[in-house]
């Protein structure tokens, strides 16, 4: 049996040879130095470590490496190169949705996850979509508004 775990990370195929029980979060931060992926609790309760795994939002602290084998992982470092990010970036700036910034990489990927499934979400859908991403600074209004703006501005992207 081969001792490798292969997966696509931000569009590059990578090989991981450590334990399959290790957390994706720790591997992304420590081995791949992708520190845009934040650690807020290691219990799946804050969403700061969210990444996209096979186009779905997941808490990377809740994923063991063996589960990633053959998968496609996108972190904020990969996502920030996309056109979709540019729209979200601008929208988050417009509403000053970024305060301390710690929840934001996860929040941006949650926004992508919402918009890729529903390009014109209601405020309620947005709130549900980011309900696993805690933010202690904003009260969420500016973030919800930013995702609404992105939905309008990003016509055709999602």
């Amino acid at each position: 049996m081969k001792n490798e775990i292969r997966f696509f990370l931000n569009e590059k195929e990578v090989v991981y040879t450590g334990s399959a029980t290790a957390r994706l979060l720790d591997v992304l931060r420590n081995e791949f130095e992708l520190t845009g992926v934040k650690c807020g609790c290691k219990e799946g309760e804050c969403g700061a470590c969210c990444v996209l795994l096979n186009d779905q939002l997941v808490n990377s602290c809740m994923v063991a490496m063996g589960f990633v084998d053959g998968g496609i992982v996108v972190t904020i470092e990969g996502y920030r190169k996309t056109n979709q990010f540019r729209v979200l970036d601008k929208a988050f700036a417009t509403t000053a949705a970024v305060q301390c910034g710690y929840c934001i990489p996860g929040m941006i990927l949650a926004a992508e996850s919402i918009l890729s499934r529903n390009p014109h979400p209601t405020a309620e859908t947005i709130r549900e979509g980011i309900s696993g991403n805690l933010c202690r600074c904003t009260g969420y209004n500016a973030i919800v508004k930013a995702i609404e703006i992105a939905a309008n501005e990003g016509e055709g992207l999602w």
């Binding site: 130095e33 845009g36 988050f92 700036a93 970024v98 910034g101």
Partner: peptide, 24 residues
């Protein structure tokens, strides 16, 4: 009148480093 915050770019892109983000 609101402007883009000084720290917006580095935070929204996940590139800013917090204490735990410096290499080990």
């Amino acid at each position: 009148n609101s402007v883009t915050k000084k720290d917006h770019d580095e935070k929204v892109s996940g590139s800013v480093k917090y204490v735990g983000d410096y290499p080990q």
